[in-house]
Amino acid sequence: MSDTPTGRAARPARARILDAAARQFYAHGIAATGIDTITADAGVAKMSLYNNFSSKADLVSAYLDERHREWMSLYAKRCEDATTPSERIIAVFDAYADHAALAYDHGFRGCGLLNAAAELPVDDPGRDAVRRHKEEVESILRTELAALCEPRVADACSEHLSFLLEGAMSRAGLEGTPDRLGHARTLAESIVAAL
C-alpha cells in the first residue's frame, strides 16, 4: 500500500488511525501522544477516531494487539523455512530482529510492547496483554525445546532463552540499534547446539 497521502486516504479510517497510533506511540510514548497528534497523522477528524475506538485506552489496547499479531506474523513467516525444532527456536530470535528492522520514523527504541507496559499502571489491562505476548513467546521456545530435551531442561532453557532475548532487546533499544539481537541469536544457537 502506498504511504503517500493519497494512498493513506484510500485505506479505511480505522487502519489509518491504528497505523498513526503505532507510529506515534512507538516514537514518543503513549502518555506523550495525544489524540490530536494521532488524528492529524492519520488524516482523519477526531470524531472518526471515536467512531472506531471508544477511548484512548481502547486505541492503546488495539495497538498492543496489533503489535502482537505483527510479531506472530513475522515468526510464522520465519517458520516457513524452519524444518527442525532448533531452526524454529532461532526463528524466534530472527522474528525479533525482523521486527526491529521495520522502518521507524524516529529511530529504533526497542520493544514497543515493553515500552508501552513501562508507561501503563500496574493494574492496566494493557500490561496483561504484554505479559501474555511474552508468555506466548516463551511457550513457543518451550514447545520446540521439548522436542530436543527432557521437560525439566526445556522449562529451564526456555526461560533462559526468553531472558536472553528480552535482555538483548532492552539493550538494543537503549543503544538505538538492533545489533544486540544478532549477538543474542549467536548465543542461542550455541545453547541449543549444546542440548
Rank of each mutant, 00 (worst) to 15 (best):
D41F: 02
K77N: 11
Y26M: 11
I35G: 11
E70A: 13
R67T: 10
T83Y: 00
D58Y: 09
I38A: 10
L74M: 09
G29T: 07
T39C: 08
D65L: 06
R69D: 13
E66P: 03
T33P: 05
A13D: 11
A27C: 09
I89E: 01
K46W: 01
D58G: 11
P85W: 01
N51I: 04
R78P: 05
L74D: 12
V60A: 06
A32R: 14
A45C: 07
D19E: 14
I17V: 12
L49E: 07
K56V: 03
M47P: 04
F25I: 06
K56W: 02
A15C: 01
I89H: 00
Q24L: 12
E66H: 15
C79L: 05
Y26K: 10
N51T: 10
G34C: 08
T33V: 02
A21P: 10
T37P: 01
L18N: 07
V44G: 07
Y75T: 11
H28F: 13
I35Y: 04
G29W: 07
I30V: 15
N52V: 06
P12E: 12
T83Q: 03
I17Q: 03
A31S: 13
E80Y: 05
Q24A: 13
S73H: 13
R16P: 03
L59D: 04
A40C: 07
P12L: 03
H28Q: 09
G29F: 12
E87Y: 00
N51M: 12
T84S: 00
E66K: 09
G43C: 05
Y50S: 06
A82H: 00
I30K: 10
A15G: 02
M72C: 11
A62Y: 00
F53T: 03
A31N: 12
A57F: 08
R69K: 14
L59N: 08
A22E: 04
Y63Q: 03
G43Y: 08
A27I: 02
R14M: 04
A76G: 02
L18D: 09
M72F: 10
I17G: 01
Y50N: 06
E87N: 03
W71E: 06
Q24Y: 06
G29P: 14
K77L: 11
S54V: 14
I38N: 04
S48N: 12
S86K: 00
R67K: 15
N52W: 10
T84I: 00
A20D: 04
S55E: 08
A76K: 05
